[in-house]
């Protein structure tokens, strides 16, 4: 008796692989182009070098109230003088010139470790820190109160030539809570030193905590 062969066991002729539809190639190409575009945008906009930890500038002009994360300040005026005498009797003579910045500054949210730790004048590539020689009669390094302005002078000793230089014209006053300005607000006020008239001498007032106008009400 002859048993008929099972059709399932019959040898099958090899067939050609199914052709991939054209739209799948197109989709793959589109996805690739999109990924390359996203990578290019990310690469182009990512911070470079020190940008990862750069200070966050808050810029304004003399007279503006600038508010950062935990520092608020108003520059009332900028003067230049050959010599300075502060409220505690300290006298500063210089072969350069004193830049006197009249300032009100306070903390915004927290007074723990809130000092005016960064007060500097940037002239081109040079950076001059506010002088701490006048001690408590100038604002550099003094503790700040939350919401209670501390008003007084900052003193910078700079070369006299900068009163008539491109660096002096583009000078920038920088203020921050910490001497290390990274990853925190940095208040920046452009100051044109070439527009200042040098006075022979300036006497500064002692730093004053509080708002005298509010107290007079």
């Amino acid at each position: 008796m002859t048993v008929p062969a099972d059709p399932a066991d019959a040898p099958v002729a090899p067939s050609a692989p199914a052709a991939v539809p054209w739209w799948r190639h197109a989709l793959s190409a589109l996805v690739l182009v999109a990924l390359l575009a996203i990578a290019a945008v990310v690469s182009d906009t990512a911070p470079r070098g020190g940008g990862w930890q750069a200070a966050i500038p808050v810029e304004g002009r003399v007279g503006d109230t600038l508010v950062g994360r935990n520092i608020e300040a108003t520059v009332h005026g900028v003067r230049a003088a050959d010599s300075v005498q502060t409220a505690n009797g300290w006298q500063g003579a210089t072969t350069g010139v004193w830049i006197v910045v009249d300032l009100s500054v306070s903390a915004v949210v927290d007074d723990r470790a809130a000092l005016l730790g960064n007060a500097s004048l940037r002239l081109g590539d040079r950076r001059y820190s506010a002088s701490d020689r006048p001690g408590l009669s100038a604002l550099a390094g003094l503790p700040l109160s939350v919401g209670v302005p501390l008003t007084g002078p900052l003193l910078f000793e700079v070369p006299r030539a900068d009163l008539d230089s491109a660096d002096g014209r583009g000078a920038r006053l920088e203020l921050g809570i910490d001497s290390d300005p990274r990853t925190d607000s940095l208040l920046v006020v452009p100051v044109d030193l070439t527009a200042l008239t040098t006075e022979p001498s300036i006497e500064t007032e002692a730093p004053l905590l509080g708002d005298p106008a509010a107290g007079a009400e």
């Binding site: 209670v148 004053l208 905590l209 509080g210 708002d211 509010a214 007079a216």
Partner: peptide, 15 residues
């Protein structure tokens, strides 16, 4: 209020 304190208390104005 700072205005309610004697002047020699030393309270900053506006506080």
């Amino acid at each position: 209020r700072s205005t309610e304190l004697p002047a020699d208390a030393g309270a900053p104005p506006g506080t």
